[in-house]
Amino acid sequence: MKAIVLREHGSNDKLVLETHFPDPVAAAGEVVIRVKASSLNYHDVFTRRGMPGIKLPFPVIIGLDVAGEIESVGADVTDWQPGDRVVVDPIDRINGGLVGETTHGGLAERCRVPVHQLVRIPDNVSYDEAAALPVAYGTALRMMSSVGQIQPGERVLILGASGGVGVCAVQLAKQAGAEVIACAGSATKAEQLRALGADHVILYTEQDFVKAIHEQFGKPARRRGAAKPGGVDVVVNFTGGDTWVRSLKCLRIGGRILTCGATAGFDPKEDLRYIWTFELQVRGSNGWEREDLHALLDLVARGELKVLIDRRWPLAEAAGALASIEDRQVIGKVLVTP
C-alpha cells in the first residue's frame, strides 16, 4: 500500500511516500480500515521531530486521527463488519499506546486497529468531519467543559484560536454563554473566528494582547469587590513560551488559566507573584475521554458544532500539509486523503 513513512526523526524531508509498504492484516480482535481521511495535529510535528523520553518503533506511519470504512475483520470480531463507517479513538485505553506514534497511523491507504478503539460514525457525519474530531476537538471539549467549567457571562481569552483546538474552543465557549476574545494572526483569520462566534478578535501581529485586554476591559484590580475588576475570567493558553506570564497579567482576581499543550515551548519563564496576588488557578487538561468523542459526534450530527477544515491534501503531499501546521498557516483542521 501507499503510506507516508517516518524512519528517523528530523525535518519534513524525513516523511517519505512509500508505494509498497506492507499491507496490514487484522489479527484476532482487530480490524483493517480503508482510510478515507486523516487529520493532522501539532502532535504529529512533535512526533516527526522527536520528543524527550518517547522512543518510536521505527518505521512508523504518523497521523493520530483516522476515519474510514472497515475493510476486513480479524478472528472473534462480531460487533463490526466490513463496510461499517468508523473513526478511531487514537488512545489505546486497554493496551496503552497511541495511533500514529506507537502503532501505525492514518497517513496510509489502510490502518489496523483493535476493535476497542473504534467509534461508529453517525450517518449524517462525513468522514472528513469525523477525522477532524478526536485529538483537537476532543482536547478542546475536555479542557473547556470538564476541566475549565466555562460559565455564562464569563470573559474568555483564547490564544491560538485559529488552530484545531482553538476553533473548537471558541465555539464551545460561546455555546456556554461566555464573552469570547480570540487571538488571531491575520485579518482573514479574524473574520473566520468572528463567524464562529468570537465577540472580539485581537490581531497579535499588530498589538500586544495584554495591552489590548487592558485597554478594552481594564487592568485587573488586586482587591475583591472593585467596581471595575477589569481583565478576563479565563485564559486558554496551549502555546506556552513567552505568552505564559503575559497571559497571567490578563486575569482578574480568582481567574483561571487553562492549558493542554505548549506548542511554543513547555518551560516558559514563570512569575509566581501574579498567581498568589490574584489567587489564580492553573488548570491542566490532558487529552480526552471516550465519551467526549461520542458527544462531539452528536454535536456535529445535530448541527451544533462546526468542523472547520482549512484544506484537504493528497497523501503524496502530506509533508507539505504538516508544514502548513508547523508554520501556523492554517485555520481549523488540515486533512490528508489517500
Score class of each variant (00 low, 15 high):
residue 118 L to D: 06
residue 76 D to I: 00
residue 290 R to Y: 04
residue 303 G to I: 07
residue 50 G to A: 07
residue 275 I to N: 00
residue 191 E to L: 13
residue 186 S to N: 07
residue 310 D to H: 15
residue 70 I to L: 11
residue 134 P to R: 05
residue 270 E to H: 10
residue 82 P to V: 11
residue 236 V to I: 15
residue 190 A to Q: 05
residue 151 Q to Y: 03
residue 205 T to Q: 15
residue 18 E to M: 14
residue 59 P to W: 12
residue 253 I to M: 12
residue 232 V to S: 05
residue 206 E to W: 06
residue 153 G to T: 00
residue 108 A to Y: 05
residue 319 A to Q: 10
residue 138 G to V: 00
residue 256 R to L: 10
residue 336 V to P: 01
residue 187 A to Q: 14
residue 85 R to Q: 05
residue 132 A to G: 12
residue 45 V to R: 05
residue 58 F to L: 08
residue 28 A to L: 07
residue 310 D to I: 05
residue 202 I to W: 04
residue 169 A to S: 14
residue 307 V to W: 01
residue 130 A to F: 11
residue 334 V to G: 06
residue 188 T to S: 14
residue 335 L to W: 10
residue 109 E to C: 10
residue 312 R to L: 04
residue 143 M to P: 02
residue 53 G to F: 13
residue 40 L to V: 11
residue 273 R to H: 12
residue 325 I to F: 07
residue 119 V to F: 08
residue 233 D to V: 01
residue 17 L to F: 13
residue 217 F to Y: 15
residue 304 E to C: 02
residue 17 L to N: 03
residue 173 A to E: 01
residue 107 L to I: 13
residue 287 G to A: 14
residue 146 S to M: 13
residue 44 D to L: 05
residue 26 A to E: 05
residue 236 V to K: 00
residue 38 S to T: 15
residue 214 H to V: 06
residue 55 K to C: 03
residue 4 I to K: 03
residue 310 D to K: 03
residue 50 G to I: 06
residue 167 V to K: 06
residue 240 G to P: 04
residue 125 V to L: 11
residue 257 I to C: 04
residue 168 C to M: 14
residue 268 P to G: 07
residue 105 G to R: 07
residue 52 P to S: 11
residue 248 L to R: 01
residue 34 R to S: 14
residue 24 P to E: 13
residue 277 T to H: 13
residue 20 H to Q: 15
residue 74 G to V: 03
residue 90 P to G: 10
residue 6 L to R: 04
residue 187 A to K: 14
residue 227 A to C: 02
residue 267 D to V: 08
residue 58 F to H: 12
residue 96 G to S: 13
residue 108 A to C: 12
residue 322 L to W: 04
residue 112 R to G: 06
residue 102 T to Q: 15
residue 68 G to I: 02
